[in-house]
Simulated scan of single mutants.
Amino acid sequence: MRDYIPKFVHLHCCLCVFTVLQLTLMLSMLEIRIQIDQSPQLQRPLTRVYLVGKLSELACSPLLSGFAMGAMHYGYGLIYLRTKGRLGGFFSRLRMAGLSVWQQCSPVMLLPWCMNVVQGLCSFPTHLWDCLAKEPCLEADHFLLFAVLAFLFWNNLLILAVTCFVVAVKLNLRMLGARHMRSANHELRAYAQAVNELLGFEMIVVPV
């Protein structure tokens, strides 16, 4: 089992990254709400905890995670298009254009995911502060317990979100750097140029 998990992650790296991005995004969209029930029938105020989320936003969340995955795919995956057949020239130009746009704009693909995660993470501290300021929360049953548990959940989610962002940025920078040939070895430069000629576009940037 110990060997199976690392092997699975290595073989399905993109799936694992997408799963973690999606899980982080969906958890951040679920808003934790703490309410104090002060019904006359109750001797003491009662603490109630709700998880509030919009189904429409949760349903659209895979699009944002998939959009973020575009930052970690060369040319948004267009370089894998086959150029054989009548439309070979068109597909070749499309691959070259996709790679050029990815080179310049790939970090922007992370912005929608980041904005939604940050918005979700910022809602809980604001709500908890308002709850502490307006309600007789300290007199409510189990308020401190629920507040601490909710804070721990939010704190772990914050760590997960920061980790996902750092991993995504590192993968993007690694792929951006892998395109550039820094070696002065003439054989490697000739090999890179041969690869570019075979593909039909400049996959590896060879300095003059």
Results as ranks from 00 to 15, higher is better:
3 D>F: 01
4 Y>I: 00
4 Y>V: 00
7 K>F: 01
8 F>H: 06
11 L>S: 05
14 C>R: 04
16 C>M: 12
17 V>P: 12
18 F>Y: 11
18 F>N: 10
20 V>Q: 13
24 T>I: 10
25 L>P: 15
26 M>D: 12
26 M>C: 13
27 L>R: 15
27 L>H: 14
28 S>N: 13
28 S>K: 13
28 S>V: 03
29 M>A: 11
29 M>P: 07
30 L>Q: 15
31 E>Q: 15
32 I>G: 04
35 Q>N: 13
36 I>T: 02
36 I>Y: 02
37 D>A: 11
37 D>L: 10
38 Q>T: 12
41 Q>D: 09
41 Q>H: 03
43 Q>L: 02
44 R>H: 14
44 R>T: 10
46 L>Y: 12
47 T>E: 11
48 R>T: 05
48 R>N: 11
53 G>Q: 14
54 K>E: 05
55 L>Y: 00
55 L>F: 00
57 E>K: 08
57 E>N: 08
58 L>Q: 10
60 C>L: 05
62 P>R: 02
63 L>H: 06
64 L>I: 03
65 S>N: 07
66 G>H: 05
67 F>V: 05
68 A>I: 06
72 M>Q: 09
72 M>N: 07
73 H>D: 03
74 Y>R: 02
75 G>Q: 03
75 G>I: 02
78 L>Q: 11
81 L>N: 07
82 R>V: 02
82 R>W: 07
83 T>C: 08
83 T>I: 03
85 G>S: 01
86 R>E: 05
86 R>K: 03
86 R>G: 01
86 R>C: 00
87 L>E: 03
88 G>P: 01
88 G>D: 03
88 G>H: 01
89 G>D: 07
92 S>T: 11
93 R>E: 03
94 L>P: 01
95 R>K: 13
97 A>H: 08
97 A>V: 03
97 A>F: 06
98 G>T: 02
100 S>R: 15
102 W>M: 10
102 W>G: 13
103 Q>H: 08
103 Q>N: 11
103 Q>M: 06
105 C>F: 15
105 C>P: 04
106 S>L: 04
108 V>Q: 14
109 M>E: 02
110 L>M: 14
110 L>K: 11
111 L>V: 04
115 M>A: 15
116 N>S: 14
116 N>M: 14
117 V>E: 14
119 Q>N: 15
120 G>K: 05
120 G>V: 04
120 G>A: 09
121 L>H: 12
122 C>I: 01
123 S>P: 02
124 F>N: 02
125 P>D: 06
126 T>I: 00
127 H>D: 10
127 H>G: 10
127 H>S: 09
129 W>L: 05
130 D>R: 07
130 D>Q: 08
131 C>F: 01
132 L>N: 05
132 L>Y: 04
133 A>H: 08
133 A>G: 03
134 K>R: 09
134 K>I: 01
134 K>N: 05
135 E>I: 04
137 C>G: 12
138 L>K: 08
138 L>C: 09
138 L>A: 11
138 L>G: 10
139 E>F: 15
139 E>N: 15
140 A>Q: 08
141 D>K: 13
141 D>A: 13
141 D>H: 13
144 L>H: 15
145 L>P: 08
146 F>Q: 14
146 F>P: 12
146 F>S: 15
147 A>I: 04
147 A>P: 12
148 V>E: 11
149 L>G: 11
149 L>R: 10
150 A>C: 06
